[in-house]
């Protein structure tokens, strides 16, 4: 079966600074794949390249066989990207925002309505969707944005730090939403520095630090391999090696 994402020897430099030193990994359809590492490890850069908003310095990334550089426009039709700490247009209502984003992806009004309905169900914000986004809490905004990211049935959702800055209850809601929506076959590439969250959420993880992937495996497989109780301890050992 064709892989959702294949990244090969991906490098990215900002001037003289090399943020990615040639990373490689693959994501299967329906799989939740996480890049875990500290701030500045290169996770966001990798996600932005896959989301076609940054160009790699060298190496390749293919989404369902399409090259991120040559086929960027086609890739944007089948992916959705949720940046870390992203905001929404504060003057729009929640519904207005969902409707605007749905219109960008939908082929006709019926499809647009279906997208908005799906997102409204996922958010669980109910009547608050009729209020201006400027009045939302951080958790509500994140739920709105996550539902926006998955409402179009993307083949690959790219989510940067899904629960960054959220309280425990909101974070659990977001994680469960991601889990539920992948049941339909959507692949997810996400990044986090919260390794416990990743352990709960991901099928496989890649440990990344200073632009290099040190190991890839299932959370359980990595824990067994390094003889550690959780991914945080695995990460520390892998990085120290």
């Amino acid at each position: 079966m064709e892989q959702a994402l294949i990244v090969e020897n991906l490098k990215k430099s900002y001037g003289k600074f090399e943020a990615l030193h040639g990373i490689s990994f693959e994501v299967a359809p329906g799989e939740i794949f996480a890049l875990i590492g500290p701030n500045g490890a290169g996770k966001t850069t990798a996600l932005r390249i896959v989301a076609t908003i940054l160009q790699p310095t060298s190496g390749t990334a293919h989404v369902y066989g399409m090259d991120v550089q040559k086929d960027a426009a086609r890739i944007r039709e089948v992916i959705s990207y949720l940046p870390e700490e992203a905001g929404a247009y504060k003057n729009l209502t929640g519904l207005g925002y969902l409707s605007f984003m749905a219109e960008l992806f939908a082929s006709d009004v019926a499809v647009q309505r279906e997208y908005v309905q799906r997102a409204s169900d996922i958010t669980g914000l109910g009547e608050r969707l009729r209020d201006r986004i400027g009045t939302y809490s951080k958790g509500m905004t994140r739920k709105l944005l996550l539902s926006r990211a998955v409402m179009t049935h993307p083949k690959l959702a790219i989510i940067d730090e899904p629960t960054s800055g959220l309280d425990v209850v909101a974070a659990i809601d977001i994680r469960e939403s991601i889990r539920r929506t992948t049941a339909e076959g959507m692949a997810v590439l996400l990044s986090s520095h919260n390794m416990l969250e990743i352990e709960y959420l991901s099928d496989r993880v890649a440990i990344i630090d200073k632009g290099t992937i040190h190991d890839v495996g299932t959370p359980q497989g990595l824990k067994d391999k390094y003889g550690k109780a959780n991914l945080e301890e695995v990460f520390v050992q892998v990085v120290r090696q």
Binding site: R48, A51, T52, I53, A73, R76, E77, I79, S80, Y81, L82, P83, E84, E85, A86, G87, A88, Y89, K90, M101, L104, F105, L145, I158
Partner: peptide, 15 residues
């Protein structure tokens, strides 16, 4: 750019 809505827009199918 400040609200990071631009990143979202750039990843949509809008030319």
């Amino acid at each position: 750019k400040e609200n990071k809505t631009l990143e979202t827009l750039l990843s949509t199918p809008v030319a």
